[in-house]
């Protein structure tokens, strides 16, 4: 009885986690919380669904194009809004990310119209027996892909030269430049990876819902809540909190009622902001805001 909601919770938690780490990646390097993050989820899903609709193009190619489009849109955002504003007050930058989100939403509305679209899953949707419960292959696929991507990102950030350079840039960009690190280029890379991951989240989550302009909004808010709960300074911490959040709200949805899901997620976020603003694993929200 509990296995099925648990697996679904892990799946949606994996999506939240993907978005949470994508949030933190640009947040740490650029110091900006990108409130347009959710819109890149939608961009990835829309582009993939459009390309997938063209006869003869395999679904995987459509998915990769969707991810590429989200990454490209992220780089464009960095060039057009982040770079010119980077020495301006932080409030300007944060407001600009909100504006970018609205622009992307409206642009999508114009391009794709008001009717929801569909995107098939990359794996066939089959129910399989697991310890007496029926669980779906789509859920398992979501869990595996998000886990692999998050672990890979964590390893890149902690074990490679790119990771060290990103870390140095996020700690002290001026000093990093004096070490010969091209910080401008690293910020672009961070945006590309970050919004690309949001695109992946879009392609993974789209088959569960339908593709609409609002696809990423709630996911991004939940990912943000997970960052608050896990702690902004800690990428694995935020990922773990995101998975936990997905499981908790899904169990609540099953045993208390669907309406309790969002209530629990955001109730937890508010509780953490008040009682433990540094999150479970570390750094306080707002230090870099």
């Amino acid at each position: 009885m509990i296995i099925q909601p648990l697996v679904s919770g892990l799946a949606i938690g994996g999506i939240y986690a993907l978005l949470a780490v994508s949030f933190l990646l640009t947040y740490r390097v650029s110091g900006v919380l990108n409130f347009a993050q959710g819109e890149f989820v939608m961009v990835g899903a829309f582009v993939a669904s459009t390309v997938a609709g063209i006869a003869g193009i395999p679904l995987i190619a459509a998915a990769l194009l969707g991810v590429g489009a989200a990454a490209f849109a992220g780089v464009a955002m960095e060039r057009v809004t982040y770079r010119p504003l980077r020495n301006k007050p932080h409030a300007s930058m944060i407001i600009s990310t909100v504006a970018v989100g609205i622009v992307l939403t409206q642009a999508a509305q114009l391009i794709w119209g008001p009717n929801p679209r569909t995107l098939p899953s990359l794996v066939p949707n089959v129910s399989i027996d697991f310890l007496g419960s029926r669980i779906s292959t789509v859920s398992l696929f979501l869990i595996v892909i998000s886990a692999v991507l998050i672990v890979a990102l964590h390893l890149v950030l902690t074990k490679t030269r790119l990771g060290r350079q990103l870390e140095a840039t996020s700690v002290d960009s001026d000093t990093a430049q004096l070490m010969g690190i091209r910080t401008g280029r690293l910020v672009i890379i961070a945006f590309a990876i970050s919004t690309g991951l949001a695109g992946v989240a879009g392609i993974l989550v789209a088959p569960m819902f339908s593709v609409t302009v609002g696809l990423g909004v709630l996911i991004a808010l939940k990912a943000f809540a997970a960052c608050v709960i896990g702690g902004f300074g800690n990428l694995p911490g935020a990922a773990i909190a995101a998975v936990g959040l997905g499981v908790v709200e899904n169990l609540a949805g099953t045993f208390i009622g669907t309406d309790s899901k969002d209530l629990i997620a955001f109730g937890l976020m508010i509780a953490f902001l008040i009682v433990r603003p540094q999150g479970i694993f570390g750094a306080k929200v707002g230090e870099k805001l």
Partner: peptide
């Protein structure tokens, strides 16, 4: 870079070192 280890601090300055692909 206070949050990084001493070794990482030194390694991060090796911009001349031979790179590798992702």
């Amino acid at each position: 870079f206070d949050e990084m280890t001493v070794l990482e601090n030194v390694m991060v300055a090796m911009h001349h070192a031979r790179g590798y692909g992702l």
